[in-house]
Design a protein around this nucleic acid. Structure first.
Lengths: 302, 302
DNA sequence: AACACTGTGTGCTATTCGCTTACAATGGAG
DNA sequence: CTCCATTGTAAGCGAATAGCACACAGTGTT
């Protein structure tokens, strides 16, 4: 069957409800000519007279009454549907699926979710922790947190903060290190992070001009950052860890920063969105909250 | 709120159902370009992304899933509504409201209704008997039977038959009338029909050239034709009655035709429709059946 | 009988629909 | 890893449609 123009239903219903083409046109904000024409076309499409017109009165035929009753329902449902969509597009509401790497997700994102759910009670959150790069669209991810360095990607991303990488060790081990330049660090036991692209070579810099590259000697390799942290806390060796993971241990003294005058390359914290024309408010709200959290002084670069 | 183009819902739903713009376009019989554009406009209207597109996969967003679920319902309801209307427009179905004058309605229309309802079981009939000319539209009349002579009217009419007017009397009275020309009929007792425009002056004609006009002398005036018939059967006088009313009495001998060589003006039997572009099949079916009935030899002009 | 008002027919313009062509992106095959 | 088929989108174009202003015929009221 050929498809029928649904928009004309609204015109037709308006005429029946108003009991007049003129009033319907006024209500719709268009000319009565158009209303007359559109209804006539609807009748032509259906090959039915829907309205019997006098210059004085407009009465629906049996078919007209029938169609009117059903069209009213249809139009109200459509309006409801659009209203519901409008809710989603204007308010933070619905299910927010966040992807994050295990370390950052556990240390920073997960603690924030409680506050987020409290602030936006209409939102439900799904946090998907995974260090693998997953297909945002296939997994219905609204926003993916990426920590480190973005490879070229067509997806839309926004840098919401940065993190420093800190060379740390347990206090007992740290005491044995007296050097104030990175050159000889290769002799120290090092816990390599197998999740990084280049876990062993580190580029130190100081005061914008002093640069040293050091190749570490791995005492052990662990392929997940939280594992590296645990081994480091246990005194297994030096390691390079992001600030957001070691902020607490450093404050409590469970870890000590080695060579604090030297810095390692900083990485970015990014929110990556699937390619979409419009961003749902739930996503914007969450990213804003996370950005504020990330920029809190406790883990901000000094 | 501004109105949203409902037609685009069909495009959007087709894409979600097909899981691909290309397949949706094929199914809709249009180009994928159009589908892409229409969905994009729908998204612009709603200021929401409904679909996340890859060249490989199309996934609906949360808003998209929401809208899809509701749109499917809306579209199916619309299709149902159109189907129901199509029923009414293609089959004799629904309520048929017929207006007819008391005499013709009682003598001819009413007896036919049983057959009509049997032939078209999906039809219900409302027969409105009234000698007054009523507003077809205001009373939701589908077809009005008019017997006699149509005055100028903008409404659509169709002549489905004719009737003769017969000068009749009860047999006892008829025996006292020996004249074979109408000239002296004015001396006979006459039962005038007050429902006619000119109840007393009658124009007789014979053989295409012999014409006489006679003014009758009313022994009584009755303003409803069935009453005139009753009084005539009782021997109250001569009267002029339509053939469809006196067919039976003439056959049984309860009435006798006076001056059978002379004819009185014939009138038409008309079906008058309210002004409408399309005629419902129930109306067409009824008028056809009535026309066949009217043209049956028993009451056809000789 | 004059009049206000209704719905419709008629030109006319702006927007939209739909097609063809061209192109960037993506995932699979070799 | 490269080639290639396929997908969705952009651009340009012609046709159909929506919408307007205007004029007009019919109808009920004053």
């Amino acid at each position: 069957m050929e498809t029928i123009n649904l928009n004309r239903l609204a015109y037709f219903v308006a005429v029946v409800d108003a009991g007049s083409f003129t009033r319907a046109a006024a209500r719709l904000g268009i000319t009565k000519t158009v209303v007359s024409q559109q209804v006539a076309r609807l009748e032509a499409d259906l090959r039915t007279s829907l309205l019997l017109r006098t210059t004085r009165r407009v009465e629906p035929t049996e078919a007209g009454r029938l169609l009117h009753a059903r069209s009213v329902i249809i139009l109200r449902e459509a309006e409801d549907a659009f209203g519901e969509v409008a809710q989603v597009t204007t308010n933070p509401i619905g299910t927010l699926r966040i992807a994050a790497p295990n370390d950052f997700g556990t240390s920073t994102v997960a603690p924030l979710l409680a506050k987020f759910c409290r602030t936006y009670p209409a939102c439900t959150v799904d946090l998907v922790l995974s260090d693998a790069k997953i297909d945002l669209i296939a997994h219905h991810i609204d926003v993916s947190m990426r920590v480190g360095w973005l490879d070229d990607s067509s997806q839309q991303a926004r840098r919401i903060g940065a993190f420093r990488q800190l060379l740390v060790a347990a206090p007992d081990l740290a005491r044995t290190i007296s050097a104030d330049v990175p050159d000889n660090l290769g002799q120290q036991p090092f816990i390599a992070n197998g999740a990084l692209r280049e876990p062993l070579v580190w580029h130190f810099s100081r005061a914008d001009f002093d640069r040293r590259s050091v190749r570490m000697r791995p005492a052990m390799t662990i392929n997940a950052t939280p594992g590296v942290l645990a081994a480091t806390l246990a005194g297994g060796g030096l390691s390079v860890l992001p600030d957001f993971l070691v902020a607490d241990p450093l404050q409590t003294g469970a870890l000590v920063q080695i060579l604090p005058d030297w810095s390692l390359p900083s990485g970015g914290i990014h929110a990556v969105y699937p390619a979409a024309r419009f961003r749902p408010p739930k996503v914007t709200a969450f990213v804003a909250m996370l950005e504020a959290e990330v920029k809190r002084p406790s883990i901000a670069p000094h």
